[in-house]
């Protein structure tokens, strides 16, 4: 079958999709967007968390056909998404993804191809780096999408709020302490910026 949907503001068309394929498989293997991760493929780990019409979901549990005509934001589009949200004064409705269309083609400036340094990052992405919340990094994309979504509707979370919001995302390396720090840091920076 053919599936048409929008990913990170760009219209995508996937052909010859087998009906049993997940949204995760189509993103990773057909659209060249492997940032969403495949740690369990059974909806338990959150590493494939993407936003589907603004709602965080496990892409491994969404049949590809269910994405037809809908808006998907993955970790690859998170920086653009966050910037547009900031430019539009914040958007907590889940429809923010449409803003992405007006910014396609923005060139990454001075990016180091080996390390990616110089890439424009979302505040939550920068906070994960700064706080040491990234080790192997396999949980990171899902956590970033989940944490960014939480901060969108709860800009000043308590520790208990953070833990509750991220309880669907497993991490095996960090013991979560630096992830807590990263989210606290992103929230604080967000607060300072307002």
């Amino acid at each position: 079958m053919r599936v048409n949907f929008t990913v990170n503001g760009r219209r995508q068309e996937a052909d010859d999709v087998w009906e049993g394929e997940s949204l995760l498989y189509v993103l990773r293997e057909r659209l060249g967007l492997p940032g969403s991760k495949n740690a369990c493929e059974q909806g338990e780990c959150g590493s494939c968390t993407v936003r589907l019409d603004g709602v965080p979901v496990c892409a491994c549990l969404v049949a590809a056909g269910q994405a037809e005509g809908r808006e998907v934001v993955t970790v690859e589009g998170l920086a653009d998404y966050a910037r547009q949200r900031a430019e539009h004064g914040g958007c907590a409705t889940g429809s923010c993804g449409t803003f992405l269309q007006d910014t396609r083609g923005r060139a990454a400036q001075g990016q180091d191809s080996q390390t990616g340094e110089g890439t424009e990052l979302a505040p939550i992405q920068q906070a994960f780096i700064d706080a040491g919340a990234v080790q192997c990094g396999f949980c990171t994309p899902g956590l970033l999408v989940a944490a960014d979504e939480m901060l969108e509707h709860n800009p000043n979370p308590t520790d208990a709020d953070i833990r509750e919001a991220l309880s669907g995302n497993l991490c095996r390396c960090t013991g979560y302490e630096k992830i807590m720090d990263a989210v606290r840091l992103a929230a604080a920076r967000q607060g300072e910026a307002v």
Binding site: V75, E76, G116, G132, V134
Partner: peptide
């Protein structure tokens, strides 16, 4: 900070 940190937070790390 990690040299691979940016690639890992943008989903580009292979």
């Amino acid at each position: 900070l990690r040299p691979d940190g940016t690639l890992k937070v943008t989903g580009e790390f292979a």
